[in-house]
Nucleic acid binder design. Structure first.
Lengths: 328, 328
DNA sequence: AATTGCATTGTAATCGATTACATAAACTAT
DNA sequence: ATAGTTTATGTAATCGATTACAATGCAATT
């Protein structure tokens, strides 16, 4: 069932049918009614491959995620969805699993005009490549911008967040503060580590290599990292984790070492995923305004969709530090 | 940059370029080399909108999820990805948020030939509509088949799983066993409730309406449902939850009521998501073979992609009941 | 009655690929 | 040398839409 068939059934031309579909005003009311009736009757949906080819757009955007195994993205996606809905734009999600080849495969959808733009949550591509991509296509990075790339992005001030967390720990009397970071998300990890280090130094403490562990992002990785941290000569009394999952792993390990988290030792996570209030002890965390991040990312992208010459913007949204039992 | 431009640069016809791209053997080696060189030099990627229009296929499939806020789907997706990769098929994910209009919007991608098939994890559509859809397009339901629809699907035996869980509780001496179920996922909820009810009856216990609460699927919903359950005259000594999130909410609520979970009262979840071993107490759960579910779903779909006349299959994979501290 | 203007509608080109068919060139067999 | 094959390439139709432009019919104006 194509537009041709509909035209035949209506005894009119494809042009007229197309006009009706696209709500062109130059169609007689009587004709419009007839055509709409036939379309309705046959449940006709115009083939968007044909349409895309002709119009060179798809009314779709790609959301590129590093993984689905993280609650974190779900709420951001809602933010994107909310705005995209208003704009009549559909969202397709693809998962890279942190693999460059997969990333490239899906980014090709931009070249192929299968999507009109992309909001990406992680890229392995070099800064120059990202700059180039963003020049050619509407492209926005969310949460994890590529350092040195000229591209629109929206983030929270990761450095400041951890700087504040760490300073707060120091104020509370902690002298040995550890950090469980990662080795995958360059931007966020580096800025958080920098915040950590600067807070130490600004408050007259020494930065100790042994207190920073690089880890993957699962619960068990947090546990393992904590085991390492607690086995050193002068173990930490506070642990800053770059994700809630790591923090949960950390708490679990500490508990099995007989520590009382929140009393003997403090632990804080990042992202404030919903588990934080249901875990025991409840978990302190740095909250990102996830819904807003999504909305803002879409806004940035939408500007580019209207006109890709729109200058790039770097938007920073504010975070909140939420203290719960694990840092009492 | 289109195939035409490449042809011009090579001083050959578009047909020849197309042949090279599609690895047709009827091309002289010298020509092939020349064309490949130009393609390489210009980083040419054939526009797949044009290609799709002509070939009427996309080498893409749609994975339709009800939500991203559930770890559960992530591992299944890996199973799908593993097989799809082998087959050279790309995966696009769309999230319905349980909304029918959104579901329909994305299913239209099948009509529009933007994807060649779909693996769906949730449908609100009526059985007849699903049957019709599955007749027209390669379509597979995973975990949550539509009751009464003629369609390929892969699931675990939800009824049996809960039947076993419940029977086990009874054997351990529990007389008041509650269930926190939901009101969204018809198939799984109904079969699990049936398993629960049948186990009670087969073991000479009475089914008590007050012991079944319908709930949404977040942590806090589990807590709320538990509050209700514990406030009735003769409260339960065991709670079966249809998801791990509900179980976590339940445990949290029980703890705040001063109960020792695993001792005073038993709680079991469903899906065996990774948090189960990191929660305190560790959570018992019914494990589904998630990776295999994904792989099998893809296999079923792939058969249909080859030939959509392939008869529908209903595949049942086996579950495992994992006991941890919460049921000790 | 002729001219003009406007509202509708149709014709055909176009988007970027694939592919059936035609054709030309080169090679083989007699 | 000739007819028949094989190989390589090109021409043009096609997929399903949109849209510039042309054409038509009708009413209003002169």
């Amino acid at each position: 069932m194509t537009i041709k068939d509909i035209a035949k059934l209506c005894q009119t031309s494809v042009a007229t049918v197309s006009r009706v579909i696209n709500n062109d005003q130059n169609v007689a009311d009587s004709t419009r009614k007839k055509v709409l009736a036939v379309i309705e009757e046959h449940n006709f949906v115009p083939n968007s491959t044909g349409r895309n080819l002709r119009t060179q757009k798809s009314d779709k955007i790609l959301v590129l995620l590093p993984t689905m195994a993280n609650q974190f993205y779900s709420r951001i996606l809602h933010g994107i969805e909310a705005k995209a809905e208003e704009a009549g734009i559909n969202i397709l999600v693809a998962v890279t699993n942190l693999e460059k080849s997969t990333e490239l495969k899906y980014l090709d959808m931009l070249h192929m005009k299968q999507v009109d733009g992309c909001i990406s949550f992680f890229n392995t591509l070099e800064p120059e490549k990202i700059t180039e991509l963003a020049q050619k296509f509407p492209f926005v990075q969310c949460c994890e911008p590529t350092l040195g790339a000229d591209v629109s992005s929206v983030v929270v001030d990761n450095r400041q967040a951890i700087y504040d967390v760490c300073t707060d720990f120091i104020k509370k009397g902690h002298k040995r503060i550890a950090m469980i970071s990662g080795d995958y998300y360059k931007y966020s990890e580096q800025s958080r580590e920098r915040g950590y280090r600067e807070a130490l130094i600004d408050n007259g403490l020494k930065f100790d290599d042994d207190l920073v562990v690089k880890s993957f992002y699962r619960y068990k990785d947090g546990a393992k990292a904590t085991k390492t941290l607690m086995s050193i000569e002068n173990p930490p009394t506070a642990i800053i984790c770059v994700s809630d999952a790591l923090a949960i792993g950390a708490v679990k390990e500490l508990q099995s070492l007989g520590k009382q988290v929140g009393k003997d030792i403090s632990v804080i996570g990042f992202d404030n995923t919903s588990i934080t209030s249901f875990f025991s002890p409840t978990l302190s965390s740095v909250a990102q305004p996830r819904f807003d991040l999504g909305q803002e990312a879409f806004n940035l992208l939408y500007d580019k969709l209207q006109n890709n010459e729109t200058p790039n913007k770097k938007v920073i949204l504010s975070h909140t530090i939420i203290h719960r039992e694990s840092t009492m």
